[in-house]
């Protein structure tokens, strides 16, 4: 009985999270564009799916993704082997990015931009190899980002020093990179961090900061995502210069 009540409450929470979108779309559809809602039944089912999905996701987050991230962070901290910890950080960043659907879409568009700008030949094989190269570049850059971020947590460096270096990197690369790639590069920072990566990486960072002596999980534990959205910009502009 009690668990049923919990399910109702979390379903209600998800509905509340979704409500702003429904209001915005409803307002623009009726008041501004003054058009009826097409396929009302399908939309109602879709909204129901979104609510169920969000509820299941939050349950799974607390049962699966957060505990595994934290228990691995603890295990690595007690093992005390920084080499394997950094390898794990790289593999996690690389592995979660290479299969990211948003990145695949952006890489394909970037290849078209490059072909239009005359940087590469406009044929399917060269478009394909450009897009694949770009995806690998971004995945490697996210791997390096998580690695640097984990190393920062271990060393306890203040995050802003590393971020300043990253910002300077972005500014310098912007000066030299071909104009066509800049927009895509800036966007690629945002698309790399998927819905599964974020909770895992956050739990890893917070878990590490809580199990290493002298680190504060609030000050040191966050920040891994910040690196993961900064390095792709630098690497993608670098890729645009080299290819």
């Amino acid at each position: 009985m009690k668990s049923l009540k919990v399910v109702w409450i979390s379903l209600f929470d998800s509905l509340r999270d979704l409500l702003p979108i429904i209001v915005v779309i409803g307002f623009f559809q009726f008041a501004v564009l003054q058009q009826p809602i097409p396929n009302f039944g399908e939309i109602a089912v879709g909204i129901l799916f979104v609510v169920i999905g969000l509820t299941l996701f939050v349950q799974g987050l607390n049962m699966g993704l957060f505990p595994i991230g934290e228990s691995m962070a603890n295990a690595f901290a007690s093992k005390g082997n920084i080499f394997w910890l950094l390898c794990f950080a790289f593999a996690l960043g690389f592995g979660t990015t290479i299969a990211e659907p948003a990145l695949i879409a952006v890489a394909d568009e970037a290849a078209i931009v490059a072909a239009n700008g005359g940087m590469i030949e406009n044929s399917p094989p060269s478009l394909n190899s450009y897009a694949t190269g770009l995806r690998l570049t971004v995945a490697i850059s996210v791997g390096i980002a998580i690695m640097i971020g984990v190393f920062r947590i271990v060393m306890g460096w203040p995050i802003q020093y590393l971020i300043v270096v990253g910002y300077l990197g972005v500014v310098i690369m912007t000066v030299f990179a071909p104009k066509e790639i800049v927009g895509i590069a800036y966007d690629s920072g945002g698309v790399t961090t998927s819905t599964i990566t974020v909770p895992l990486v956050t739990a890893l960072g917070v878990g590490l900061a809580s199990s290493i002596k002298g680190r504060n999980p609030m000050i040191d534990g966050f920040g891994l995502i910040a690196f993961a959205s900064l390095t792709p910009m630098i690497f993608v502009m670098g890729y645009g210069m080299l290819v």
Binding site: V50, G53, Q59, I196
Partner: peptide, 27 residues
């Protein structure tokens, strides 16, 4: 428990994405 959690995350994201595709994105 962790495997159940992973399963819930998978199912949840599946429902979530399909719901968005069916309802909100086209509109």
């Amino acid at each position: 428990k962790i495997l159940t959690g992973f399963l819930l995350v998978l199912l949840g994201l599946g429902f979530f994405l399909e719901g968005l595709q069916a309802a909100l994105f086209p509109l």
